[in-house]
């Protein structure tokens, strides 16, 4: 799986301040760490940046490209800032993060994706907001791909469809809908890629318990053919899973997903935790903050 490092983010206390102050050093250090950690892309999340976006992105892209040799994801809702970023990228083909399936967003951003031959994340967020089930996801996906490839001549492999990750403790049922959508994805959007904002699965649960939720969710998405994910750069275990280093844990999670009985008696603590977590993600057990303890 390809991994997109999420940590360079305006919401972060440290890097948000560095972005606002245009302080290159901490941002470059972070980018170097991300590359070392094996990220395939560095996401540059500058937020909506309605006034400062163009200026900030124009400054930021060369600052990061100076120190790492991996592609950048341009993450802002400011169309002009995206364009500035596309112009500034010299080393690799950039990834626009993201284009919603709303007429005004597609009309503004798809021409840019075509012009710069950039990759883009097609976020399945429609005119009525979040899709309610896999069928609405399918319909939005088809609309996006049809428009991008047909009207703008964009190659399917440039499109990273994002079916939207929801938190396990708020909308577990939507996770199931994402998985159902992934089963249809190859047929609906042949040749297209996929991605997802993985960490949102653990948005809400206690901080120290977030990694295992992210890790198990990744195992499940990986099995469903997810091409890439936007992830925490510092979760080494997560990266190992993406690189097929934990086939045993993956097999256990698959068993849970397939509804097979898992005998817990001979499992290690880690294995038991993976089984319990898979059960709450798959809705076989209800989530509670103490899910690992019961």
């Amino acid at each position: 799986m390809k991994l997109i490092g999420e940590n360079l983010n305006i919401m972060s206390k440290k890097y948000g301040a560095a972005l606002k102050a245009k302080e290159a050093k901490p941002l470059q250090e972070l980018a170097i760490e991300q590359a070392k950690a094996g990220m395939d892309y560095v996401d540059l999340n500058i937020g909506p940046a309605s006034k400062t976006g163009v200026d900030l992105m124009t400054w930021l892209v060369p600052v990061i490209e100076e120190v790492v040799d991996i592609p950048l994801a341009l993450d802002t809702s400011n169309v002009k800032a995206i364009e500035a970023g596309l112009k500034a990228c010299k080393k690799h083909r950039p990834l626009i993060n993201s284009i919603m399936v709303r007429p005004e967003r597609m009309e503004a951003l798809l021409p840019l994706a075509a012009q710069y031959d950039a990759e883009f994340v097609g976020l399945l967020w429609g005119p009525e907001g979040m899709p309610r089930d896999e069928n609405e996801r399918g319909a939005l996906c088809a609309e996006l791909v049809f428009k991008a490839t047909g009207e703008f001549g964009i190659k399917p492999e440039r499109i990273f469809v994002d079916p939207i990750q929801t938190p396990v403790n708020v909308q577990q049922i939507q996770i199931m809908s994402v998985l159902e959508f992934m089963k249809m994805f190859a047929d609906i959007a042949p040749g297209c890629r996929s991605t997802i904002g993985l960490s949102n699965v653990s948005n809400g649960p206690p901080d120290h318990l977030r990694p295992i939720l992210n890790q198990v969710m990744l195992i499940i998405l990986k099995r469903h053919g997810m091409y890439s994910a936007i992830v925490d750069t510092y979760d080494t275990m997560l990266h190992e899973i993406a690189r097929d280093k934990h086939p045993g844990l993956e097999a256990l999670v698959h068993k849970v997903e397939d509804g097979e009985a898992v005998d817990m008696t001979h499992l290690s603590d880690e294995e038991r935790s993976f089984v319990k977590t898979a059960k709450v993600i798959m809705g076989q057990a209800l989530y509670s903050d103490s899910w690992l303890e019961i």
Binding site: N169, L286, Y287, S288, D289, S290, E293, I294
Partner: peptide, 11 residues
């Protein structure tokens, strides 16, 4: 909230 209901019973 179903998840909080469960958590409170655990606590």
């Amino acid at each position: 909230d179903i998840n909080l209901a469960k958590q409170l019973n655990i606590l």
